[in-house]
Computed example of a mutant assay.
Amino acid sequence: MIVRQTPNALKIFFTLRGSIVPKIYPQILLTTLLSTLITVIQHWHPNSFPYYGTATFTLIGIALSLFLGFRNNASYQRWWEARTLWGQLVYDSRSLTRQVLSFIDEDNTTAIENGEDGKDNNETGRDIQRDMVYLTIAFAHAVRHRLRGTLPWADIEPFVAVTDHDRMHQAKNVPDYIMRLMGKQLGDIRRQGLISEQVIQNMDERLTSMTIVLAACERIHNTPLPFAYMLLVHRTTYLYCIMLPFGLVASLGWATPLICAVIAYTFFGLDALSEELEEPFGLAANQLPLTALSRTIEINLREALGETDIPPDITPINGYLQ
């Protein structure tokens, strides 16, 4: 995501990082070359393209603007909902960690059954706190990797017990598997009577909220805007920008290529920006900085545990926050 401040009046025309121009310059170039060719033909052979009037192009332009506006609003709504969901995940992670650290006694020692060798081992309250907080960190990283389609193991394996790695690798939905581990851990805490039923219920509500965040993000990721609507906007934009110089050249003359290029930049730019915002979880310049958000969760939660070897914040590079 671009985090640089608003450029000044001079730089605003030359800023490319975060701009949509690199994606749409072929369309702008095509429109400009076509407009230039038509202008040259009209100059050497007057009346080749008669004056059609601007009323038709004005009506089509207004209709196209409405289509692009509706699509841009729908895409931005998806982007903002995704950002709101990740804000909720930050809130739930901090709240759950605060509850775990506040209500589980560090000095408490509990006998637990080891699933591998069947023996009972002693686990302190501090161990239970760390396990629960670590699973919360692993969940945040796993959600990011699932939405981006990347391998999560390097980020989540340090926070998940070694005995759970094999099953975790086999899971179809890794963050959901981690959530089940968190639910099992909470069930163990309840059976051991480490905290009251009311606190257990409050912590379970935090887990439910985190599950809702995962499901809502998957809904956004797996449900794009209808293809027919996108196709209609694409076709109309291309047809309008191709027909425009034929209708303007008789009245604008040599100014036709410049005007057509500006209009093409506006319409193709809105179309491309809407397409980029439609999928908010990627790595494009205007998509959400999920790496920085998940790193923030990790830093906050490990700091709450009192750890000192925590990773640094992810800072913007050339105004871009990943």
Rank of each mutant, 00 (worst) to 15 (best):
L244P: 01
V249Y: 02
F13P: 01
Q99L: 09
I38H: 02
L89R: 08
F159W: 10
A304L: 13
F139R: 09
M1R: 07
G87E: 07
S75C: 11
K11D: 13
V199S: 03
A9L: 08
E218F: 00
L10E: 13
S95D: 02
I12T: 14
E275H: 07
L33V: 15
T256M: 11
R191G: 03
S251A: 14
P158Y: 04
L101A: 05
A261I: 05
R4M: 12
F227I: 09
R302E: 15
P26S: 02
G253P: 06
P224W: 13
P257H: 05
A285K: 10
G69Q: 03
P158T: 11
V249R: 00
R167A: 14
E278D: 15
F67G: 03
T36Y: 09
N8M: 05
F57L: 14
L301S: 08
L85D: 05
L33W: 01
N73M: 01
G149I: 03
G319L: 13
I317E: 15
D309E: 15
L186V: 06
H234C: 00
G319S: 10
Q198L: 15
R148S: 07
L30S: 04
T97W: 02
N47Y: 02
D120V: 06
D176L: 12
F49K: 01
N108E: 12
I299Y: 07
H145P: 00
T54V: 13
I189L: 07
D166I: 09
F67E: 06
M203L: 14
T315P: 01
I259S: 04
T296D: 15
P224G: 11
Q192K: 11
S102P: 00
T208S: 10
I314M: 08
F246E: 08
R235P: 01
I60E: 07
D164G: 01
E123Q: 13
L30N: 01
F267W: 02
I12D: 07
A255P: 00
T110D: 09
G183P: 00
R206F: 05
E298G: 13
S65T: 12
F267V: 04
T124H: 05
T58N: 14
V133F: 01
T15N: 12
A74D: 08
A228T: 13
E116C: 00
P226N: 12
G87C: 10
M210N: 05
I299C: 09
C217W: 05
P46V: 04
E197H: 12
T54I: 11
Y320C: 00
I112E: 10
R144T: 02
F49P: 02
P280F: 00
I28N: 03
I200A: 07
D120I: 08
T6N: 06
L135G: 11
V3I: 09
